[in-house]
Simulated scan of single mutants.
Amino acid sequence: MQKSILILGACGQIGTELTLALRELYGNEQVVASDIREGTDSLMNSGPFELLDATNYEAIEDVIMYHEIEEVYLMAAMLSATAEKFPERAWNLNMNSLFNVLNLAKEKKIEKLFWPSSIAVFGPNTPKDNTPQSTIMEPSTVYGISKQSGERWCSYYYHKFGVDVRSVRYPGLISWKTLPGGGTTDYAIEIYHAALEKASYTCFLNEDVKLPMMFMDDAIRATIKLMDCNPEKISVRSSYNLAAMSFSPADISASIKKHIPNFKVSYSPDFRQGIAETWPSSIDDSKAKEDWGWESKFNLENTTVEMLKHLPSQSH
C-alpha cells in the first residue's frame, strides 16, 4: 500500500532507524526524512530529505503540501539528561513541535500522526513495579513534564477535533546503529561500546537501579504496528505503556561478562541517578497487547548478543 510519510527529527536515535524501516516497507521515495541537520549517509542517500525546523509551522506545512504527505511521525525532542540543562529550550522544542503537527492534523492537512511519549511521564509517586497504564504520574523532570503535557494534548485533540494521533511510552532504547542522544538510559548503549573498546566502563548510575528497556528493533516494530492498526482498536489516545525487559547496570554487565570475561565496571553516579530513581522499574503493557497485539521479541541475553555482534563493524 502506498502512503506518503514525513518524519520530523529523522536524524535522531529513533528517527534514523524508523526512517530506514519505513522506507523499506513503503518505498524510499514515499518517506521524507527531515531534521535541522543532515543525518547518516544511509539516511541521506536512501530517499528524500528536507532541512526542517520542527518548531516552524509554516515550513512544515510547506513540506507537507509539496510532498502531499498523509502521515507524520514527530521524533524531534530534547531528551531527559539534556533537557535538565536547558529547561526552557526543551519545553519550547518538545511542545511547540507537537502543537504544530496537532494543528496541521486538525486543519486536515495530514490524516494521521505519531508522537512518542516516554516512561519519563512517571514520577517518584508512581507505583514502581508493573506500572499500570493509568496511574499517578507527577513527573519531576523537564522531559517528563513535557511528555505528560503532550499526552494530555494528544488526548484532547483526539476527543475535541477527531485528530488521529497515536503514541507509545518508550522505555530506554538500545541500538548498535546510532549513538545515544542524551538520555538517562544511554548507559545501556555506552556500556557495550566500552566493553568492546577497553573492557572497562564507569557507569553514571548505581549498579542496582532497574529500568525498563527495549531493543530498538522492538521499538520500531511497535511504532509501525500501532500506526497500521485499525483506529477502532485503539482505546488509549494519550499514550500506550510499552515493555520488553527490565534490568540494572549490574545485570547488563553480567550479561556482557559471559562474552567478555575480563570486562570491569565501576560506578560513579551523577545527576542522572536522581532522574532514574523517579522512573518505574517495570511496566505493565497489557493494554497494548490487548488492543493491537503488541509482543516484544528481545530480552537482555539476545540484546547483548546482537550488540556485541554488530558494534565492532560500526565506526566510532
Rank of each mutant, 00 (worst) to 15 (best):
M1I: 04
G9D: 05
Q13E: 15
I14L: 15
L18E: 01
T19P: 00
R23A: 03
R23D: 00
A33V: 05
R37G: 09
T40L: 05
M44D: 03
S46A: 03
G47V: 01
E50R: 15
A54W: 11
T55D: 01
N56I: 11
A59G: 01
E61T: 11
D62Q: 14
M65Y: 13
E70G: 07
V72Q: 10
V72K: 03
V72A: 02
Y73I: 10
L74F: 03
A76H: 13
M78Y: 11
E84L: 10
E88Y: 15
S97E: 12
N100V: 11
K108Q: 14
S118C: 14
A120L: 10
F122W: 06
P127E: 14
N130V: 05
Q133N: 09
H159M: 12
K160D: 11
R166Y: 08
V168K: 07
V168A: 13
G172F: 04
L179R: 06
G182Y: 15
Y187D: 08
Y187R: 13
Y192K: 03
H193A: 06
A195N: 10
L205W: 08
K225P: 02
M227I: 15
C229R: 12
P231L: 06
R237Q: 12
S239T: 09
S239W: 13
N241C: 03
S248H: 09
I252T: 13
I256T: 02
K258G: 01
F263R: 01
V265Q: 03
Q273S: 08
G274M: 15
S282F: 00
D284M: 00
T304M: 05
V305K: 04
E306L: 05
H310G: 05
H310T: 12
S313Q: 09
